[in-house]
Design a protein around this nucleic acid. Sequence first.
DNA 1: TTCTTAATGCAATTAAGTTGCAAAAATAAG
DNA 2: CTTATTTTTGCAACTTAATTGCATTAAGAA
Lengths: 147, 147
Amino acid sequence: MQLSCKNKFYICKCNFVAIKNMKKSRNTLAKTKISDLLTQSKNALSHSEIHEFLDGFCDRVTIYRVLDRLIEEDFIHKIVTIDGLVKYAACHDCSTVKHHHNHIHFNCEQCSTVTCIEDVEPLFKLPERYKVNNVNFTVSGICPNCI
Amino acid sequence: MQLSCKNKFYICKCNFVAIKNMKKSRNTLAKTKISDLLTQSKNALSHSEIHEFLDGFCDRVTIYRVLDRLIEEDFIHKIVTIDGLVKYAACHDCSTVKHHHNHIHFNCEQCSTVTCIEDVEPLFKLPERYKVNNVNFTVSGICPNCI
DNA sequence: TTCTTAATGCAATTAAGTTGCAAAAATAAG
DNA sequence: CTTATTTTTGCAACTTAATTGCATTAAGAA
């Protein structure tokens, strides 16, 4: 069964198909605001940046929980940089059928932005018998704006 | 000038050349124990795993500071998994002249070990004008032992 | 409109990592 | 070998990020 979504981004980008017995995610104002924010943002955002932007609209804890749901629904992905910075970004390149989050993320050491380098998919091949579920590729250095 | 090191692993693997005005790192018992532990370990270790292993030999804070020094000296490298797990691994493949930490790390979701896949270097090419200083490539899934 | 269940806010808690400072240890100098 | 210098350590306190439990509120189905 497909979730009905008032939020346009949900309708067009993320026709999430729920598995039997999976509890249905509801589309709340907080969820809509946060997904809109991430969709419109050029760079990945941290929890505190989102909190700051929403400016008291909802509780910090709610933001954590909404982000979890959006990840669960494959609408956003999570990025962890080498110094433990956690950021979230909308999945611009994902279709209903295939989600590919295995692109490189660039973390600028100067302005500390994290950007999805969507068109660069790293090539790698693991030894036999490793089952891959998820990848996290971050490269840190200096971005074009800060050079 | 070269640091004198009583620890055999330092002598053979990591002839650290200090830069002018850089403060000299001393070889203490804590540092020796921690580097030995990491060198002998098959998998990357977290701060708390090291703490547990040393079993009260030194303070938590000392472990953090020793790990910082070992990273500074390019003797170990730091790995951050997608769920924020921070682990440290000795640089087995590094030579005096070239350090390459840009191999893939595999994080097993079952047994939560982190292993360096030393012989797999991912290929990627960033757009112009990005200056790369550091990479963090982690792949999570199920390792051969847990399949 | 009512009912069921998910989402939220709040307070409290856990965990990871950092900082300042006095005491101890490692190395250099005499 | 002894003394002087500077790094390292331990301890306590602190900061920040994230999680949990629970009562209340709200979304969506009936």
